[in-house]
């Protein structure tokens, strides 16, 4: 009930703000632009094949396909730019990218969003990237002769790693998803434009996202393992880890963060390794007698409890069946 009251309060506040904004936010209808090649010629007579940047390469892309009536002309995105047409030293109405002459991010994005607001961009407003003043052109490029890098799995991560440097380093760990191998892109799990899921995940929850490739973990199982159904990231770290398979901590220590019953309570130290001092009891007991405990060595707890994601065997309550 308290939560509902909070929600209603916020809605009233935003509603008042909205009403106030709406009163003067009557958007002026954009001036009609000529999206045809004739209209583009206003720009391309100067920004031709001799330009520093591959301006004309936009015609290779879907944006440049004039047979599709939805596609923009130069001025649809950059504005009619009357002042620029008179004096080339002055910038266009909308300058994309970064730099001293770039338009404010909100202005740049508004241009793109005017066509691309639905679909994967539905949750853009208020999303993590939008809240960090990211422009569409921070990741996308229309005038790139090599194509838009984010549209290919092999080259997409490069773009993301420009900001997400920790994840770049993690993709070079001993246990990883095939991101650096070019078989997975960041967008296989994340929607950078905004989503209903945590961490910009494509689905409503972490588990739902993981199950798109790991449906064998979905169940429901007869014997469920609580932290698994709760959240895959309780145990796993998806970008890369020193602990196979993509674990935050290795067994048995990971398991002992939650389990203290039976042999889960035991201390496991370097002495319990095959060459450890407890295994050999400082040389007091022969190797043939003392066995390195299976709870620590090899696959540790998973030497026996291998079905940690759940079991559907009637005798599988201990995840051994």
């Amino acid at each position: 009930m308290k939560l509902l009251q909070k929600i209603l309060g916020v809605c009233v506040l935003l509603g008042a703000a909205t009403f106030g904004v709406a009163a003067h936010a009557a958007d002026a209808a954009p001036a009609a632009v000529d999206r045809t090649l004739k209209g583009d010629a206003v720009c391309t007579r100067c920004h031709d094949e001799g330009s520093d940047k591959a301006i004309l390469s936009v015609y290779k892309t879907r944006h440049g396909n004039k047979a599709d009536e939805r596609t923009p002309g130069c001025q649809s995105c950059h504005g009619s730019s009357a002042t620029h047409l008179k004096d080339k030293a002055l910038p266009t109405d909308v300058v994309f990218g970064k730099g001293k002459t770039a338009s404010p991010v909100a202005v740049q994005n508004k241009t793109c969003i005017s066509c691309h607001q639905a679909g994967k961009r539905t949750h853009w407003e208020g999303s993590q990237h939008q809240g960090q003043d990211m422009a569409c052109t921070s990741c996308h490029s229309n005038h790139n002769n090599g194509g838009d890098k984010v549209l290919s799995k092999a080259t997409q991560p490069e773009v993301c790693f420009a900001c997400h440097k920790a994840e770049r380093a993690q993709t070079h760990r001993i246990s990883t998803h095939p991101i650096a191998a070019g078989k997975m892109g960041c967008s296989d799990c994340h929607n950078p434009h905004g989503s209903t899921g945590p961490k910009l995940l494509v689905k409503n929850s972490i588990n739902e996202t993981c199950y798109t490739c790991h449906a064998e973990k979905r169940g429901p199982f007869l014997w469920e393992h609580g932290p698994v159904t709760d959240d895959c990231s309780n145990c796993h770290t998806p970008h890369g880890s020193t602990n196979t398979p993509l674990l935050k901590t290795r067994a048995p220590f990971l398991c002992q963060e939650c389990h203290s019953g039976d042999h889960g309570k035991n201390i496991y130290s370097g002495g319990n390794l095959p060459s450890g001092n407890i295994t050999g009891v400082n040389g007091l007991q022969g190797v043939a007698n003392q066995g390195a405990p299976a709870q620590l060595n090899g696959r540790a707890c998973m030497n026996c409890h291998s079905l940690v994601h759940g079991s559907n065997h009637p005798a599988g309550a201990k995840f051994q069946r």
Partner: peptide
């Protein structure tokens, strides 16, 4: 004997709607 991961199904229906009250205000 150990049981394999059971076959399973997941079916989901999603409805999404959004409205721009103005260029400044949006509800999704």
């Amino acid at each position: 004997t150990v049981a394999g991961a059971p076959s399973n199904q997941f079916h989901q229906f999603n409805l999404t709607g959004g409205h721009n009250y103005s260029s400044a205000t949006k509800l999704v």
